[in-house]
Every structure is written in structure tokens, then in C-alpha cells.
């Protein structure tokens, strides 16, 4: 390929520009990371904090000694694991029958599911419903309303439709029930799409804070995001500092504490990031949910 001078210049500039964008995009995280390791004395100086001047673990000691953080972590893991598992079960149970053209009243069922995608009752009726179901201050409030949704069902349904019907037919001749066909043949054959949907669900569960804020008052049932919100958004670092050992006080500030809490929340996502990225990119290509 011939390259002229101007094209070469463009290539270099583009290289630098995109590198700059990536650095700017990463910098806020880096700043927080650096701040979290800073001692109170360096943290209070206004600086870009490109590098912590010394490694000071006081903020992390505070965060790890906070019982709320442990509660939050546990509850978030519970809701993510249980919620994702049940969502996959419900989504497949819904998707399998809908993927069969010979399902009686299929059109009506499809419409029934689709309507929920474009119209909702809004916050207040849902709040009253949750209240009447006795789900206020109940750990199931994290799981039940997210059991499945129209989009997930349609995405999985579309994939099921691409599986040859002959597989189901021969299993049926061998006397397998529909449930068994779903679990034994369809689900293993749909691993890529099921992984994608499972990861969508898991990320939603991990990051969800709204339901915990609205429906749960009990501190023992709170999730990680709520504690994070109290500390980094509302600035209630006193909750952590309450049990502080005195000599540490000079070593951290509320800013380094916030930074440490943020880092502790980020790390689990970073650990699975390569995995997330791979399957989310696959998922993006499923833009439409039509038949």
C-alpha cells in the first residue's frame, strides 16, 4: 500500500490521540488507586497523584475492619449467584416453549411477553406491590423482580430456534419429556448465548443499588453498592471510622478511605473483566429480538 507523507502524519497523530484518550479514560481509576495508598499528609496536598509517595495501608486497614463491608460483600455475592442461577432457569423455561412454532396460542404468548418490554407500571405501583407481597426487608426482593425479562427470553428463544428440531424429535421418540430435552440437549447446545445472558444478569445484580435503597432498611441485608453509596456519595465515612484505633487517625483522610472502598469494590470486576469483555462483545451483536 502506498503511503503519502500526510497519511503517515495522520497515522502518527491518530496513534497518539487514541493513546491519549485511553490514558484519560483510565486516569480517574489510577488517581483513586494512588489516593487509596496515600497517607493523610500526601493525600491532602493538591496533586495529580500519578504515584503514591509512600505506600500507606491505613485506609485499607480501616475498610477491612468494617463489619458492614463484609455484610455487603456477602449479600452481593448471594444475590448475584442465586439471582443469576434462577434467572437462567426461568429464562430457559420461558424461551423453550416459545421457540416451538407448534406451541398452542404462541402468538398470544409472544405478545404477552413483548408488551412488558414497551410498557411498565412505573415505580409507585411496583413499590406498593413489593410492599403487599411482604418483600420489604426481605432478601428475595433482590431476586424475584429480576427473575427474567422479555429481552432475555427473546434472545434465548431466537437461539433455540436455530437448533434443528430433529434433535428434539428423536429425544421425544426415546420417551424424553420436554423438560429433559431442554436441560439435556438444548441448554448444553446453547452455552455461548447462555453464558452471555448469565453475565448480563450477573453484572446487573452486582451493580444494583436501587432496590436495596428503596426496599430494604435492615443493615444486615444491605448490599455492597449501598455501603459504597453511603461512603463515597453521601460521605458517611464516620461509619467506618467509628471503630478506629486511635493511632491510625493521622494516617488516613475521608478521601483516602473513599478511595480504598472504591478500589475494594472494583477489584472483583477487574478479575473477571477479560471474560466479561469477551461475552459482552458477543452479546452486542444480538441487537434485535425479532423472530
Amino acid at each position: 500500500m502506498q503511503t503519502t507523507f500526510s497519511e503517515k502524519t495522520f497515522n502518527y497523530l491518530n496513534f497518539i490521540l487514541l493513546g491519549g484518550i485511553a490514558i484519560l479514560s483510565l486516569y480517574p481509576f489510577w488517581y483513586i488507586l494512588s489516593l487509596s495508598f496515600s497517607s493523610a499528609a500526601t493525600a491532602t496536598q493538591q496533586s495529580l497523584h500519578l504515584w503514591p509517595k509512600e505506600i500507606c495501608l491505613a485506609s485499607y486497614r480501616m475498610v477491612f475492619s468494617d463489619p458492614d463491608m463484609l455484610t455487603g460483600y456477602t449479600n452481593t455475592i448471594i444475590r448475584t449467584v442465586a439471582g443469576t442461577f434462577l434467572t437462567m432457569l426461568f429464562t430457559c423455561l420461558g424461551a423453550y416453549p416459545l421457540s416451538k412454532p407448534y406451541l398452542p396460542y404462541r402468538k398470544c404468548f409472544m405478545l404477552f411477553v413483548l408488551i412488558t418490554m414497551i410498557f411498565s407500571g412505573g415505580l409507585v405501583p411496583i413499590y406498593l406491590l413489593i410492599k403487599n407481597l411482604g418483600l420489604i426487608n426481605n432478601i428475595w426482593v433482590y431476586i424475584l423482580p429480576l427473575l427474567t425479562n422479555a429481552f432475555n427470553i427473546l434472545v434465548v428463544k431466537n437461539f433455540f430456534q436455530s437448533i434443528p428440531e430433529s434433535i428434539a424429535e428423536s429425544a421425544r421418540i426415546d420417551g424424553a419429556s420436554e423438560l429433559r430435552i431442554l436441560f439435556q440437549f438444548y441448554m448444553p447446545l446453547s452455552k455461548p448465548i447462555l453464558t452471555t445472558v448469565a453475565l448480563w444478569t450477573a453484572v446487573i445484580h452486582w451493580n444494583m443499588w436501587f432496590d436495596a435503597m428503596i426496599f430494604v432498611y435492615d443493615n444486615k441485608l444491605q448490599v455492597l453498592q449501598t455501603f459504597l453509596q453511603r461512603i463515597v456519595i453521601q460521605g458517611q465515612t464516620s461509619l467506618i471510622e467509628k471503630g478506629a484505633i486511635n493511632y491510625d487517625i493521622a494516617q488516613y483522610t475521608s478521601e483516602t478511605l473513599k478511595a480504598a472502598v472504591t478500589v475494594v469494590t472494583i477489584v472483583p470486576i477487574l478479575l473477571v473483566y477479560p471474560f466479561l469483555q469477551k461475552y459482552f462483545i458477543k452479546g452486542i451483536m444480538i441487537g434485535s429480538v425479532k423472530e
Partner: peptide
């Protein structure tokens, strides 16, 4: 990342 987490970073 959730907007709680990003929000905290942005506020800082």
C-alpha cells in the same frame, strides 16, 4: 461499573 462507583470517583 455501577454509577454509584463511578459517581464516587467523579465527585473526587
Amino acid at each position: 461499573f455501577s454509577w454509584v462507583l463511578l459517581g464516587g470517583i467523579i465527585l473526587t
